[in-house]
Nucleic acid binder design. Structure first.
Length: 437
RNA sequence: GUACCUAUAGUGUAGUGGCUUAACACUCUCGACUUUCUAUCGAGCGACCCGGGUUCGAAUCCCGGUAGGUAUGCCA
């Protein structure tokens, strides 16, 4: 019987939560949840000069938005606290003394260095396999500082001590830490503790192949909501960057991800971030949800555009569920609805003008609309009007859409007609005819 | 510089020595849905970094290049 799984995400609060960090957190979380274990958040704020409160908040908010639940952490508490490294100085001091007693550290210019054992170190990484780094040559890997001259402990040391104290069983982290692992392994050995299992996952890269850093476009998790992404889609997409189920399925719910995720499916090469595909995932998740849920999610974006939303507006917003990839597209797509003087899109009008019969057909349609006793027949009458005048339904459908909305795309025509009503629809038709003549 | 990791269509992945005419998805183009825009479905374009070797047979194993990445801090 193996120990219950405990994984962690250990960010330093020096910027906003970025997509690479989010994925690292996600993999740890997925692994823990899959195995019924706990996911711990530990804030590595040992470098005071670089930490900010905003960055701390961004970590909490980002994880919360993504739906990555924290079992133990600064806000949740837990049996291994405190979870801010800045509050754990005494603990580090205690472990540091073990190193002193064992004679593994020595003073150097006021700082303390850890004496490496001069031998090859082999790690057994769950993703990278067996990797050996030779520590024989001191000039290549000089003894590392574990305690600064100002008394503060360095990352490698606190990281290891905390992983011991907090009982981590698996450490899943970015491949940029691969070369740090032998150092950590040496520390575990010197401290007389069993190291956790390690898994180094490939990095997320920019389109040009460089490591995605905090400054790069699309790097901030906080920006995704604003752009109109839903968190499940972002989670789904970043999970697919470097991991696959080995089958053809790509669209997963979070529950499915927990069920199917495994470290065997993680590959070893870096993945370039593709916003287009991320948007496609978003569309798939939008399509998969119920109409009410979609409308509820879309409304804040419409309100954000400065519009008071009433029942008809909610209905309108809901009608574009299968027309958008991003929720932020919704307000623009339905803005014509309450704006009687909506602008006509140039490209759309040009296309309509290219159809010589358009104006005549629209006039006939306006007449037909005016005479309708049952407005529910409106959409059908478009096709009938077209046929009655020797045209195909499609030749009138598009001009009608442009006339009513000013745009090439948008909600279903029937839905537009229905919500606009007879009088307003006729008025809009005549307005467009005037514009075209 | 040195070490380590990686290398399949523009992008993300599958393929772990023969079942491969290298599969799936995004993007793009074109069709279908005798109704627009979407959605959906269908089709098309498009790849095994290079060179040796092992083998009857290599995208797959080995070696060497090349390219990219990461690490080489009293940052994390």
């Amino acid at each position: 019987m193996s120990k219950p799984v405990r994984t962690r995400f250990a960010p330093s609060p020096t910027g906003y939560l970025h997509i690479g960090g989010a994925r690292t957190a996600l993999f740890n979380w997925l692994y823990a949840k899959k195995h019924g274990g706990d996911f711990i958040l530990r804030v590595e704020d040992t470098d005071e000069s670089r930490n900010t409160d905003e960055a701390r908040a961004a970590i909490f908010e980002g994880l919360a938005w993504l739906g990555i639940s924290v079992d133990e952490g600064p806000n949740e508490g837990g049996g291994c606290g405190p979870y801010n490294q800045s509050e754990r100085q005494d603990i580090y001091e205690k472990w540091f003394q073990k190193l002193v007693v064992a004679g593994r550290v020595y003073e150097d210019a006021g700082a303390w260095r850890f004496r490496f054992e001069r031998k090859p170190i082999t790690m057994h990484d769950m993703v990278c396999g067996e990797v050996t780094i030779d520590y024989t040559d001191e000039s290549i890997n000089p003894d590392m500082t574990v305690k600064r001259s100002n008394g503060a402990f360095v990352f490698h040391f606190v990281n290891v001590v905390d992983d011991i104290e907090m009982g981590m069983t698996h450490v899943i982290r970015g491949e940029d830490h691969l070369m740090n692992t032998p150092k950590h392994l040496q520390l575990f050995e010197a401290l007389g503790e069993e190291p956790p299992e390690y898994a180094h996952i490939p990095l997320i890269l920019n389109q040009d192949g460089s490591k995605m850093s905090k400054r790069d476009e699309g790097a901030a998790v906080a920006g995704y909501s604003e752009m109109g992404f839903v968190s499940d889609a972002v989670v789904n997409y970043i999970a697919m960057l470097g991991w696959s189920s080995k089958g053809d399925q790509e669209v997963f719910s979070v529950d499915e991800l927990v069920r199917y995720f495994d470290l065997e499916g993680v590959n070893r090469s870096g993945a370039k971030f593709d916003v287009e595909k991320c948007a496609w995932f978003n569309q798939q998740h939008l399509l998969a949800m119920g109409g009410d849920e979609f409308a509820a999610l879309a409304v804040p974006y419409v309100e954000g555009a400065g519009v008071a939303v009433d029942g008809d507006y909610v209905r309108m917003a809901g009608s574009v569920q299968e027309k958008v990839k991003l929720l932020a597209e919704v307000p623009g797509m339905i803005s014509f609805f309450r704006d009687g003087d909506y602008p006509f899109d140039d490209a759309a009008m040009e296309k309509v003008r290219g159809n010589e019969q358009a104006v005549v057909l629209l006039e006939k349609l306006a007449e037909s609309f005016s005479g309708l006793s049952d407005w529910g027949e409106a959409k059908g009458s478009i096709g009938e009007t077209a046929k009655a005048n020797g045209a195909k339904p499609g030749q009138l459908m598009f001009p009608t859409r442009v006339a009513l909305s000013g745009m090439m795309g948008g909600p279903d025509l029937g839905e537009i007609l229905s919500i606009l009503g007879q009088e307003e629809s006729v008025r809009r038709l005549r307005r467009a005819i005037g514009e075209l003549s």
